[in-house]
C-alpha cells in the first residue's frame, strides 16, 4: 500500500507541482490550501507525512503544527517545512526537515524518502 503525503500550500502551482512529483514517485497525495482545511484533511486521511508551507492566508504553518502536535492521533506524523521565507529552518523546532523554495526535485525526494525511512 502506497504511503500517503498531505501537501499544505496556498499556492496552487506549488501544490500541483508537489502532488505531481509525489504521485510520480508512487505516493498517494492529498492536499489543502490553508491550515484549517489541512487539519481536517489530516484527521480524515491520517497521512504518513505532511509538507507544510509557512506563510498562508488567515493562519500560518506553525499553527497547523501546533494543532497536529496537540492531537494524540496525529502528533507523530512527520512534517517537512517547504517555504521561501528566510530563516525558515527555525520556524518549527520539531519539523523533520526544512526545504527552501525554489527546491530541487531530486533533493526533495531524497529528504522525503529519508523522513519516511525508505
Amino acid at each position: 500500500m502506497p504511503k500517503k503525503i498531505l501537501v499544505i500550500d496556498d499556492d496552487p502551482n506549488i501544490a500541483d507541482y508537489l502532488t505531481t512529483i509525489f504521485e510520480n514517485n508512487g505516493y498517494e497525495v492529498c492536499s489543502a490550501n490553508d491550515v484549517n482545511t489541512g487539519y481536517e484533511v489530516a484527521k480524515a486521511e491520517k497521512p504518513d507525512l505532511v509538507t507544510l508551507d509557512l506563510e498562508m492566508p488567515t493562519e500560518w504553518g506553525p499553527r497547523f503544527y501546533r494543532k497536529l502536535s496537540q492531537d494524540d492521533e496525529l502528533k507523530n506524523i512527520p512534517v517537512i517545512v517547504i517555504s521561501a521565507l528566510s530563516g525558515n529552518q527555525y520556524a518549527i523546532q520539531k519539523a523533520a526537515a526544512t526545504i527552501t523554495k525554489p527546491f530541487d526535485r531530486d533533493e526533495l525526494m531524497k529528504i522525503v524518502k529519508d523522513v519516511l525511512m525508505e
Binding site: 509557512l54 493562519e59 500560518w60 506553525p62 499553527r63 528566510s86 530563516g87 525558515n88 520556524a91
Partner: peptide, 8 residues
C-alpha cells in the same frame, strides 16, 4: 528568526 513565524 524563530520568533517571526507565528502569524498572529
Amino acid at each position: 528568526p524563530a520568533a517571526s513565524f507565528w502569524g498572529g
